[in-house]
Structures are given as structure tokens and as C-alpha cells.
Amino acid sequence: MYDYLVSVFLMMGALYVVIAHGNLVKKVIGLGMFSTAVFILYITIGKVEGGTAPILEEGVTVYSNPLPHVLILTAIVVGVATTAVGLSLAVRIKAAYGTVEEDEITEMNLQAEEAGQDGTEDES
């Protein structure tokens, strides 16, 4: 039960990082933490009291549930893939705007819109 509650707390903390922080890299870190907290939820579902790791062994009859493990193996890979793509976007944003702070980027975009640029000019 504590596992469940802790994973909830971790999700909340991570989600807060994603929404409240303006730095794009920090947001990516938050997303990573959020998904990892979801993994804890799944793996906790898979645990069986008194079970062992689901690898066939002589004399063992109770195994933990392998299915959540499989799902989370997939989800971990999805998570790191998202991190990689998010970070490469952040790097490109840094090169294009000179900053990775959301506030500054928004301001620059607003200025561009007031200047009547309609999003068709080449980035330098």
C-alpha cells in the first residue's frame, strides 16, 4: 500500500515540475520522473506476496506476475525515447532562440506576431 501512495506522491511532484517550471530541460526531467513513477505503480501491481522473480526454477511455485514487467519494459523504452526527442528539440530551441526559458521564448514569439510575421521566414 505504501508503494502505491509513494508512487502517487512521486507522480504529483514530477507533474508539478513539468507544469510549473519554465526551463525546458527541467520539464523533460519532470516528464521522465513522472513516467518512472507510473512504472512503480505497475510493478507494484505485479508483485505477489511470497513470490519470486518470474524465471522458472526448481521447487518454486509462486512467481510474481510477469505481465506488468513486460509492459513496463516497453514503457521504459518509450520513456527514454521521449526524453531523447524532447532534449533534441530543446537543443534546437537553444540554437534558434538563444534560451531555453519558456517565458523568454513566449515573449519573442509575441513580438514576432506583433511585427506581423506569419511564420514563413527562414530561421537564421
Binding site: V25, H69, I72, I76, L87
Partner: peptide
Amino acid sequence: DLDAVDVAFTEAAVGAGVSTVLL
């Protein structure tokens, strides 16, 4: 601790390893 050895292995290699290097 929760019997998910394969997942632990992957999380250590991918989460702690690859993600951190990329960050």
C-alpha cells in the same frame, strides 16, 4: 525488491545510464 529483475536491469541501464548521459 518487487521481483522485477528484468525491469530493474533495464531501468538501471536506460533510465540511470542513457537518460542521464543525454541530459
